[in-house]
């Protein structure tokens, strides 16, 4: 079986084919044991992957993280077009956002009784004395609220 046929089977499994193609592949599967075997293997792989994907949960709602990232983004100066920074920006921006997210999620270890300073907002200082905890700060000027979230899971 060539690679195109294999890809067609994968597309059929993923529901990406048009109605006519779907019919053709279904008929092909009825007639070809090799195609059926590959299709069964692909189904099995998909089931294993979707059923065993490790759950990655944010300790607080995504808005917390996004608000922080958005603030960082808007605080940065606009790129100058004559140097084609826009192209770099498309790469650097997601990388920066991911880096910031990772930094926010990194556990802040503090020895018992010893403070560990954490990333803070302007005008706010936070020290945590809790080992293996994640601290997230968030500020909304429009709402007039500041949050200090500590996650100990």
């Amino acid at each position: 079986m060539n690679i195109d046929s294999q890809l067609k089977l994968q597309a059929y499994l993923d529901g990406e084919l048009k109605a006519g193609q779907t019919r053709q592949v279904a008929e092909w599967l009825d007639k070809d044991p090799e195609a059926r075997a590959l299709f069964a293997e692909l189904q099995h792989t998909t089931t294993i992957m979707t059923g065993n994907e490790p759950p990655v949960k944010l300790p607080v709602p995504g808005e917390f993280f996004w608000a922080r990232i958005e603030r960082e983004i808007t605080a940065r100066p606009s790129p100058r077009p004559r140097y084609s920074w826009a192209q770099w920006w498309r790469v650097l921006l997601p990388l920066g956002a991911v880096g910031l997210l990772v930094a926010l999620l990194l556990p802040r270890d503090a020895a018992p009784g010893k403070a560990s300073s954490v990333a803070t907002l302007k005008g706010m200082e936070v020290e945590t004395y809790l080992p293996n905890s994640q601290v997230i700060t968030f500020r909304s000027e429009s709402e007039g609220v500041s949050f200090v979230w500590v996650d100990t899971r």
């Binding site: 005008g123 706010m124 200082e125 500041s146 200090v148 500590v150």
Partner: peptide, 14 residues
């Protein structure tokens, strides 16, 4: 557990 220093104007929440 934690120490936080912050301005808290009237009408705002920490």
């Amino acid at each position: 557990v934690q120490k936080v220093s912050q301005a808290l104007p009237k009408g705002e929440y920490l």
